[in-house]
Write a protein that binds this DNA or RNA. Sequence first.
DNA 1: GCAAAAGTGTTGGTGTTACACCCATGG
DNA 2: CCATGGGTGTAACACCAACACTTTTGC
Lengths: 238, 238
Amino acid sequence: MFPSFAVTVDVVILTISDGDLCVLLVRRGGDPYRDHWALPGGFKLPDETLDQAAKRELLEETGVKAPKHLDQLKAYGDPGRDPRSNVVTVAYLAVVPELGGIRAGGDADRAQLFPVRQAIQRRFELAFDHRDILRDALQRVERDLESSHLATAFVGQTFTLSELRAVYERVWDTELDAANFRRSLLASDASFVESTGTTAAPGPEGGRPPEMFRATDSWKNYGSPVKRSRRRDPRDRR
Amino acid sequence: MFPSFAVTVDVVILTISDGDLCVLLVRRGGDPYRDHWALPGGFKLPDETLDQAAKRELLEETGVKAPKHLDQLKAYGDPGRDPRSNVVTVAYLAVVPELGGIRAGGDADRAQLFPVRQAIQRRFELAFDHRDILRDALQRVERDLESSHLATAFVGQTFTLSELRAVYERVWDTELDAANFRRSLLASDASFVESTGTTAAPGPEGGRPPEMFRATDSWKNYGSPVKRSRRRDPRDRR
DNA sequence: GCAAAAGTGTTGGTGTTACACCCATGG
DNA sequence: CCATGGGTGTAACACCAACACTTTTGC
């Protein structure tokens, strides 16, 4: 009676790896787009929510359990975006601190991290309209970093301020003043981190032992105290 | 072979009417939820994009042509959200300056504006999960007002700064300083308004004739120069 | 071994900018 | 009466400098 569609969910999994913002892609083992890199995803079942479907596919195809942040991104339904039939996909954005035990599963015969900005460029072809989805996901994470505590989803349970600052710097592809970063995060009543009182071991290059922090749950939707520089210098835009 | 779904689009149409932020709702003429107020919407066709479907339903059910702002909001696909079958809906947010010639059409036997915040309260029952959608739409427009030129979509081709300021004030339910508002909008190189050089007639209460402005297309994704107050006084939060 | 250098994290200071708040003037 | 323009104090922050604590290097 009504036009019939298949509904899929695709997940953009972002993490910081090797000093770069990366996305997890899987290589498709079946048609269409066999052997192309694609976002992990699959068909929604009638008796699960979209969120549940995203979590399930995430686990089945990549082994990633319980991401620290999973949010709906956008729906994509252009006619012909899937050569098989009428398919509407709902894209999700997942942010994880580190990928412990990536493994390929389901329709994917390989899973691998790629630097996001390289994947968006024409380095290689992505399946379906996944390049568009990836572009939207990057914009989204750039924006949400400024208006929420999303940055803490990129790091572990405890972390140093340098690690957290690196998240902002790598996502925004910019540099932040360490002194102001610390002050902004600690002085504000809208802060979302607190000191654990302990210090970590210095990095391989030495240096003063950094203080360890953890995320607090007292964040009240006040936005992030860390703001992108208002200096609109065209030179620092890539 | 794959689980089959119907895909619908629902449109949250917002406007400023009578000094209040309002949403256009239609009264359903058919089952399910007959005689309930609902968001205008309907089924997506296989050979149209989601955006096209939203525009088409908007026109068919309410007579609203070419909204100044139409953006995808979110997809909703909880099992059982539609008693008929498996239905995934993609919600859209439309912002229009004024509703010229609202008329009911299609499945709707009446169309009417309601103050958004009243409609979200338990004043009357909305069909399906449309109350959730409306809540999300309000949050979205509050946020986007701060990070884009969305405010200009609420006003006509030309407008006074007071009209534009009223948009911010009614959406955020707050008050803005008229002097700072003018300076922020005009001084910034990220501005999205320019003077037409003409003045309008004063309002019914008299006053100095205001300058008329128009929106420029030179806006470059720099966010809105108008910011919500950082004063986190708990008293002004409703 | 030991001192100096270099690397990293933390604290302090200063000039500039944005803006909340108030007042004056114009139509 | 409302729109516009100006003025002032405060808070945020970009930029710079100093200091603390570590590892590495040179002798």
